[in-house]
Computed example of a mutant assay.
Amino acid sequence: MEDRPRILVVEPNKTALSVLARRLSDAGFRVATADSGSGAIAELHRVPVDLLLAEISMPRMSGAELARLIRSHVQLADLPIMLITGRSAPKSAVLAYEAGADDVILKPFHFEVLVARIERRIARMRAVEQLAQDKAALDARVVERAIQIGELKEQLAEAQARARA
C-alpha cells in the first residue's frame, strides 16, 4: 500500500537500525534507513518521507545538528522530526528541541508507545497539509469570485452608460 506512511530511521548502530526498521515495518510503516546524518540528508533528497526518527548521539553529525539542517532547508522544514536519546542525557533532549525536533523519545521506550507517538505526529502533519490545501483552494475561489465581480461591475457600468445614451 502506497498510502502507508514512510519513516526515515537514522541510527549509527547497524543492529539497532535493523531491529527498529523491522519492527516499524511490521507495525505497518514503509521504512527507509540511514546510518549517519549525511546519509539521512541524501535519503531525504532521494525519496519523500513522512517522518524522521533519528538517534541524537551520532558521530560526525548529531541528531540535533541533523534537525537544525533539515529545519533550514525550505522543502524539508515541515518534516516531523523525532529524536531518540538516553535518560542520562537530558541536556541533549533540550538541545534537540532547540534545534527543531518535534519530539524526543527517551530510552528505554515501549515500542507500542513509540508507534502511537509516530502515528500522532504523522496524523497532525497530514491534517496541517490538508488545511494548507483547503486554504489554497479557498484562496483560488476568492480570486475567481473577485474577477467575476470585477467583470460584472464592468458590464453594469456599460449597461448604465448605454441606458443613459
Rank of each mutant, 00 (worst) to 15 (best):
residue 156 L to A: 05
residue 104 V to H: 04
residue 8 L to R: 13
residue 67 A to K: 02
residue 164 R to Y: 02
residue 102 D to K: 10
residue 125 M to P: 01
residue 41 I to V: 14
residue 129 E to Q: 13
residue 20 L to M: 14
residue 116 A to Y: 05
residue 129 E to L: 07
residue 159 A to R: 15
residue 103 D to P: 02
residue 86 G to A: 14
residue 51 L to E: 06
residue 132 A to K: 09
residue 161 A to V: 00
residue 149 I to P: 06
residue 156 L to T: 08
residue 124 R to T: 12
residue 106 L to W: 01
residue 25 S to D: 11
residue 116 A to R: 12
residue 81 I to M: 07
residue 25 S to E: 11
residue 5 P to D: 05
residue 162 R to M: 06
residue 120 R to E: 07
residue 63 G to N: 12
residue 150 G to L: 13
residue 12 P to E: 15
residue 125 M to H: 09
residue 121 R to C: 08
residue 152 L to E: 15
residue 29 F to P: 07
residue 95 L to I: 01
residue 13 N to K: 12
residue 39 G to T: 02
residue 65 E to H: 06
residue 104 V to Q: 04
residue 55 E to V: 07
residue 75 Q to V: 09
residue 157 A to I: 00
residue 69 L to T: 11
residue 37 G to Q: 08
residue 91 K to I: 04
residue 25 S to Y: 02
residue 36 S to A: 08
residue 24 L to R: 14
residue 148 Q to V: 14
residue 26 D to Q: 08
residue 120 R to A: 14
residue 94 V to A: 09
residue 112 E to D: 13
residue 91 K to T: 07
residue 68 R to Y: 03
residue 77 A to F: 00
residue 66 L to Q: 05
residue 84 I to T: 01
residue 114 L to C: 10
residue 144 E to W: 03
residue 88 S to Q: 05
residue 118 I to S: 14
residue 82 M to H: 04
residue 133 Q to R: 15
residue 64 A to D: 04
residue 152 L to R: 15
residue 63 G to R: 06
